[in-house]
Amino acid sequence: MKETLNKLLKIDRRWLFLLLTFSILIPIIKPIGISSKSISSGVQDTYNFIEKLPEGSTIILSMDYDPSTAPELHPQSAAILKHAFKKNLKVIIMTFLAGSGGLIDEHIRNIPQQYGKEYGKDYVVLPYMPNVLAALTQMSSDIYAIYDKDKDDKILKNFEMMKKIKNYKDISAVIDITGTALLDSWIVFVGDKYGVPVMGGVTAISQVGYGPYLQKKQLKGLIGGMKGAAEYERLISEPGKGTSGIDALNIAHLLVILFIIFSNIVLLILKLS
């Protein structure tokens, strides 16, 4: 008995990798449909804030992530964009991360058409900007001083939706979806300094660190990881990649919890014997 348990503790970890692989692959191939009932307060607050904005308001959606964090963050930005278009809000999409170009293209190729939205009238895409601090501070007085053209080199001022936009005073909210610390810059240089409501979408890893900003309402809402994306998709009744990923996450987590409980029981038995 003791020998078998000792062997179990020294099991080749590649078997565990294989089990983990199956636990994520099987729900992708054959979705189980495990429902997620709870909605985090940060996600609910973000949804409520956007829901309450009057039609025609302009929001900034800053997509500051690249393919390395896209599985968590891409469903979040898709859900925000869908919600904004449903509510007939105008959206300025921008980025401070060059690697996000393809991901932004993917969204604007698929989402606006579903809601009959037009480029220039309902949304614009700004080009990649390398200096975050310069851009964030400059936009407080005149957006066009730093962004004179859109991503396709067209004069930004000439677009219909931009005619009433000059600086942050004309922006109703900022939502920064990011796998970096750029959300901090939005809070410091835009939210706190100019009073623009800032919300965020971050990876699950960094979610905990934003608790103090949420508590102080420096952040009006926060979406965390794929779970947050799934919750937002549920709120807007648009199931997407976040929802389908929850099955795999649930099974994988269950497996890890089982591993932890099992190995602790084995250790306990060995210790007692």
């Binding site: 965390g224 990649k241 990923g245 795999a248």
Partner: peptide
């Protein structure tokens, strides 16, 4: 706990 969830999300992304 959140880090584990984030890593699984990335793994899900690649497997997807």
């Amino acid at each position: 706990g959140n880090t584990v969830m984030a890593r699984f999300s990335l793994l899900y992304g690649r497997f997807d």
